[in-house]
């Protein structure tokens, strides 16, 4: 029971990571820097909780905010770089942060941060304060894990909702325009610098939040959690799930996380499958499993259902 709750919780965190890459990609920028922002968020949250005793509802957003603040100058500096160059520069950022985390004393070096206050444990202690017994016939630990899952699911839902709403607005149109044709977008009056840095910082914020969640879900984080492999993993979620609809990365995270739980014993087999999937998706279905066309069809159906008389006219 607790195991399934945990898997579902990690799917939610992965979904947030997928969305963080999706956001940046929605302005046509391929970033491998979000693993670095995740590291920033994770260590920030962990250290604030350990050293300063901040409550967890503050440490997680603080990690996200720090990541976003760092992302603004980084994004602006990388702005002139396109495609390949941007991917490599942001990978350089990630790798540099990993080396730094590996060497600083405060981050615990290669051993990482230990004894990070755990969200589930905290909740359990909190519930015991006023509940004699967990509801629904669950044990207190299971109930706490369920609440953890609900919190992470709510955060994923919130991030998803924000991205969908933003996507339907003037800002979202600017993102799509830049992604499609940056020159034409700027000729249409869009400040491409502003929107690219905006997307970069928003993605960093989500990655930072996910890092903070990760820190408080696992007791322990180390530099090895946030390197190239992590950067690629997030990218796989998007590539498999769908690169141009927000539901894509969430689906990708859910599918691949579930798959990796089945292959838990064989990490290398899991990565072989990840790799093969990336290759295959690019070759056969470059937009990913979910495409905007599917959602346009769904939208039309929904409109017809809501207004049966008007449906024919459209």
């Amino acid at each position: 029971m607790s195991y399934y709750l945990q898997v579902a919780t990690f799917i939610c965190v992965s979904g947030i990571l997928g969305l963080s890459v999706y956001l940046v990609l929605s302005t046509g920028q391929l970033t491998l820097g979000n693993a670095g922002f995740m590291l920033l968020g994770g260590y920030t949250a962990g250290l604030l909780a350990i050293k300063l005793g901040w409550p967890l509802w503050l440490t997680v957003p603080a990690g996200g905010l720090l990541a976003a603040v760092v992302a603004v100058p980084l994004g602006a500096a990388c702005l002139r770089l396109r495609g390949v160059y941007l991917a490599v520069a942001t990978l350089g950022f990630t790798q540099s942060l990993v080396v730094i985390a590996n060497n600083l004393t405060i981050t615990g070096g290669a051993l990482g941060l230990k004894d990070i206050p755990n969200l589930g444990t905290r909740l359990q202690r909190y519930f015991r304060g006023f509940l004699a017994e967990a509801p629904f016939g669950l044990t207190m630990a299971q109930f706490a894990n369920l609440v953890v899952l609900l919190i992470c699911a709510a955060l994923l839902g919130l991030a998803f909702w924000l991205i969908v709403r933003q996507g339907q607005s003037r800002v979202g149109r600017a993102f799509t325009a830049i992604r499609t044709d940056e020159v034409a977008a700027s000729a249409m009056g869009i400040n491409t610098t502003y929107y690219k840095v905006l997307a970069f910082a928003q993605g960093a914020f989500l990655a930072g939040v996910a890092g903070g969640l990760m820190a408080h879900l696992t007791y322990f984080i180390g530099p090895a959690d946030f390197g190239f492999s992590r950067a690629v993993e997030m990218l796989v979620f998007v590539v498999v799930g769908g690169t141009s609809v927000p539901a894509g990365p969430v689906l990708g995270a859910a599918l691949l996380r579930t798959l990796s739980e089945y292959l838990r014993e064989a990490k290398d087999l899991r990565l072989i499958i990840y790799g093969a999937l990336m290759l295959l998706m690019v070759l056969v279905r470059p937009q990913g499993l979910l495409t905007p066309g599917m959602f346009a069809g769904l939208g039309r159906w929904w409109q017809r259902r809501r207004a049966p008389g008007k449906g024919a006219a459209v």
């Binding site: 390949v84 991917a87 290398d268 990565l271 990840y274 790799g275 093969a276 990336m278 290759l279 690019v282």
Partner: peptide, 27 residues
Amino acid sequence: VSNLAPLISTIGLGMVLQNVMIRVVGA
């Protein structure tokens, strides 16, 4: 085809190569 596609396909092939090799000779 997006110019990002070969980045992704070669990352994928790289992951396959590395992990197949881990299966064969260990890490």
